[in-house]
Design a protein around this nucleic acid. Structure first.
Lengths: 235, 235
DNA sequence: GTACTATGCACCGTATACAGTGTGTTCAGA
DNA sequence: TCTGAACACACTGTATACGGTGCATAGTAC
């Protein structure tokens, strides 16, 4: 049966993540990290539904730590309660575009503040991440590039020296990770991203807040545009 | 004993909130709403610590629904685990200013999008909120003005037609509510706020996204400045 | 007198049990 | 054959019980 095979593969993926996290102290924390990663990596399909017992059966625990983990996942909007089942939350086309609009202003602020606050070592780190990604793109490693892209944006928020902003940026990043496709898959996009990232770092290095802000906003706006073109072909 | 009196008054305040929310179906949800409101209204003092049993004793429930509520409160950053106790999280001066920076760009985006997306009835509602606040300020009702101010900003986010942004704005609003003082208490500030709100609505009504954005950013920047002046005198 | 160790208590994390509710299925009647 | 009602089962929400860990305090030894 097709359904059973699919269930087996997801169960296997979850078991693997579980091995990775279960060494941590509290098992409720481990469950949270496991399920979170399973959802973000799309091992658990959006829209699929589970009862608390399903999940506790999968991980060999009682319902209590599962409940606690799911409670946090619901708070993160990664799961939703549908009737009396727990569903992996889906993300709509509309939401994708909405998120990009918010992401643009947050990343803009991060870049702006980084241009004012970033220390020379932090700027050096941004340059280093840029180089890493350049190498990764050259070798055509999409997954690696995707990861480095996230690291770049994370570090940009870090360099802004605004911890609240950092948390907000990370929230948004996690949402972006849930999209079914990445803009890296779009023809020529990785190269453009590299140029746009470089423009942001250049503006930061020359202590130009306005320029950095504009460069970051442009970058996200350009990503949004690619996303808009990609949307029809993705589910 | 002074400590006991303080504990009695907080217990009384919580009992009152509990009466208000306990009618809801799940008691874990009711506990969450009760404690959340208690923290935001400063009935539970920042920095004060409780064990799970303390709280379950207060509300006459077992630890289970308390744990679930606290888990969500920790996720909201309203509580933090300190060792094995639950502490009401404190907010630092630095964090206050950081939040204002983020709030500026989010409200700016909300105003910008509202200028593009808001329908005539929505604009009318903004005008109505403006009038209500004008009346409230004239009568010197600070608490009411404070509440209407929040409603204005909430509705601004709603009128942006971006539900993700709406959630983000609300997150930030909740943080602002936790500050020990409000900028409304600053001499002449309520009148200025009214003018600044009016400027935002004017720009939205004349379909001027740039103007609306700038007006909102200016508004928050001006609030931030007042906050900066007020900070030394608040704990 | 001070420092270190041991013992006891308090509290957390997890499991399990139980009650209540909602849903699905089956049977009967029209 | 279709519809409605009733019963049963499954799953959630809350309570309670238990094992383990960490901290505090007290006592003893140096």
């Amino acid at each position: 049966m097709k359904v059973d095979i699919a269930k087996d593969t997801t169960a296997a993926a979850i078991a693997q993540l579980w091995d990775q996290f279960s060494t941590l102290g509290r098992s409720s924390e481990a469950v949270y990290l496991t399920l979170r990663e399973a959802i973000l990596s799309r091992a658990l399909e959006p829209g699929s539904q589970y009862s608390e017992e399903d999940l506790s059966g999968m991980l060999g625990l009682s319902r209590t730590p599962i409940r606690e983990a799911c409670l946090r996942l619901v708070a993160d909007h990664l799961m939703v309660r549908r009737g009396r089942r727990l569903a992996i939350s889906e993300i709509s086309h509309e939401e994708v575009l909405e998120i990009y609009d918010v992401r643009a202003v947050l990343d803009g602020l991060a870049a702006r503040q980084a241009a004012i606050q970033a220390t020379p070592p932090e700027i050096a780190q941004l340059r280093w991440l840029l180089e890493q990604m350049s190498r990764s793109v050259a070798s055509g490693n999409t997954a690696e590039s995707f990861k480095l892209n996230h690291e770049f944006h994370d570090y940009l928020a870090y360099a802004s020296h605004n911890s609240f902003l950092q948390v907000q940026v990370r929230t948004v990043q996690d949402r972006v990770r849930r999209f079914p496709t990445t803009t890296f898959e779009y023809q020529g996009r990785p190269q453009t991203i590299l140029q746009e990232h470089a423009a942001i770092v250049d503006a930061i290095e020359s202590k130009d807040p306005e320029g950095a802000d504009a460069a970051a906003v442009d970058h996200i706006a350009s990503s949004r545009l690619i996303r808009l073109k990609m949307l029809p072909e993705s589910t």
